[in-house]
Design a protein around this nucleic acid. Structure first.
Lengths: 197, 197
DNA sequence: TGAGTTGACATACGGTCCGTATGTACAATA
DNA sequence: TATTGTACATACGGACCGTATGTCAACTCA
């Protein structure tokens, strides 16, 4: 039986996204050639424009995919922790470590904001931020955290975490920089606690 | 007397940088046309490539200029504060407010990292970060702050501040978001204090 | 001072890339 | 099986960047 049409389309979308992840990570969004990228998976730009509208549409799809993977992994890390506060720290540290991945860094942290605008307004809804916000909202209502604005706190924490990762990755000696970043992060985050621990 | 050669060259550099600030802020680095930009000040791409090497070279020059202005203003804000700790907070809040300027946001926060790489390795040395680092180093040696890694803390604080500004600027109601961001920032930063205030 | 030299900038060209308009072949449907 | 819709390929035009080459004014120095 011949392949079902809808299946091949879904498969082609997946292959294009996969190729784009590699190309965007390797050369950056601006320098990535759509001709090369599509040819790598045996397609042409025709398929790309049909599926994603334009180059930025493909970037949005790639960002959404990676963002979703990150959020899932962070949630997992948070759930494995002892209590909710440790969960928030675990989530954040998971972000820091994930952001050391060049693919995440280049695509989600650098090119994403530059070409798609602020993460809080991404079509993908920025799953990462949602996860953090949810955790913080719980902690605020439990009075574990001082009565801080949830959105603001989430944005500050994730911003600090992801920025820390950028610094670690670009530093001369990432191995030794990572614990320093995590350490400083825990201290700063503890400033939100209602009472010292 | 005819114009001195070195003067006109310096003037042309300044005019190109000025035009680039406008063009990069308005359309983003990638979409800014070098032909348009140079024509706006009565020059051609020839002048540009002679003075700055390539398009990224011009971006680097623009970033260095804005970064320098920001660092000066932050330092000023910090010096006007009561003590060093308040100075650090004042510096950081100055960053948040400056980062609300679309020019700063688009060029220094979004396109800068995306096209020039991590700020800690910019040729301009990232004057902003230097100022913060200096202030933190003083506070650590005075035991006002816990013994945290200076680089890491500086990077986290400035990352949080600048990210807060991105959030404020992109939010539906920036007027009301700004105090929330500043508030949350002060709490987080206080986590670095050796003893509560 | 004036002829030669330097270099700042203009002009011309080639190559790449994106987005659209048009063509085509196959799956879906009846 | 004949028809139709659509996923994708092909063809085209325009924009842009970087370089190679040309030019003219400012500088140098006898």
């Amino acid at each position: 039986m011949a392949k079902r049409r809808i299946d091949t389309m879904e498969e082609n979308r997946a292959r294009l996204i996969s190729a784009a992840r590699k190309a965007f990570a390797a050369r950056g969004f601006a320098a990535a050639s759509m001709d090369e990228l599509t040819a790598d998976v045996g397609l042409t730009r025709g398929a790309l424009y049909h599926n994603f509208g334009d180059k930025k549409g493909l970037l949005a799809a790639v960002v959404a995919q990676i963002d979703g993977e990150m959020a899932a992994r962070a949630k997992e890390a948070g759930a494995a922790a002892g209590d909710d506060w440790e969960g928030l720290l675990a989530e954040s540290e998971a972000y820091i470590e994930m952001a050391l991945d060049p693919e995440v860094q280049r695509i989600v942290l650098l090119d994403g904001p530059a070409f798609l605008g602020d993460p809080s307004q991404w079509p993908s809804q920025n799953a990462c931020l949602q996860v953090t916000k949810h955790m913080i909202a719980g902690l605020v209502s439990e009075r574990v955290l001082k009565p801080v604005d949830v959105e603001a706190a989430a944005r500050l924490l994730s911003g600090a975490a992801l920025n820390a990762a950028l610094w670690v990755a670009a530093s001369d000696d990432p191995r030794s920089a990572l614990p320093k970043a995590v350490d400083a992060f825990r201290l700063m985050a503890a400033g939100l606690l209602a009472e010292q621990r």
